[in-house]
Amino acid sequence: MGEPVKSSDAAADNQAIVSQEIRDIEEGYRAARAAGQPAEVQPRVDYPPYRSSILRHPTKSLHHADPETIELYSPAFGHQDVHALESNLTIQHGGEPLGERMVLRGKVLDGNGRPVAGQLVEIWQANSAGRYIHKRDQHPAPLDPHFTGVGRCITGPDGSYEFLTIKPGAYPWKNHLNAWRPAHIHFSLFGTEFTQRIVTQMYFPGDQLFPLDPIYQSIVDQDARERLVARYNHDLTSPEWALGYEWDIVLTGPKRTWTENEAYGEQGDDEH
């Protein structure tokens, strides 16, 4: 490590410097692709434009392992864990939150295209002004007394999930001077085995902040990062009620075979 490490919250560099770093990395990736290297489908953990990653990424390559025993199964979730109303983020307080009401719907699939049924989906997000209910978020946008920004649901037999929420705003952060995150919703997902566990972020189509954001750009492959962008669907939009967005999630794997999967039985208490 040659250069001294900058504090992640120093906002030391301006957007032009960070954007140049982003472009340089992307050019390197394009050259590697042109030379026959495989596409990268996950973010780079070593991505210096995201300053707080500098001291928090493994420097040794991940060790290949064949999943064993417990890793080939997943914790079970069901209606003991999640109430049906937890998928509606607009009714958690005494009134309607401000902002664009939206329906968000999609499916959780495994790498073979099979639905992941009866599993836990958790989301969290900023309010329509781009403010999180978190003591560390102190930027001077208003909190909304009618919006917490946390939702959960259990996927249906076809792997489907649906939330009713409001569209989050962009929010400023201190990665660099004048850094703004594109509007996004955080997702936490489980599959049928532990190896499929994923936390990610969903974005909105056409966001002008995409090229400027080191978190989005840490996925250096254009096709791969577009997998995080929801699709606006006017057929899902309800008249005088809510805009409709769709976003499907594909988990890695599974490593366990279908036969063993069946023998093990049902996940959760939703899949009957």
């Binding site: 489908v41 973010p43 995201y50 936390v199 972020q201 978190i215 999630i249």
Partner: peptide, 11 residues
């Protein structure tokens, strides 16, 4: 299918 990429859990 190609998997959906992960992202940081954030602050």
């Amino acid at each position: 299918l190609t998997p959906t990429p992960g992202q940081t859990v954030g602050p």
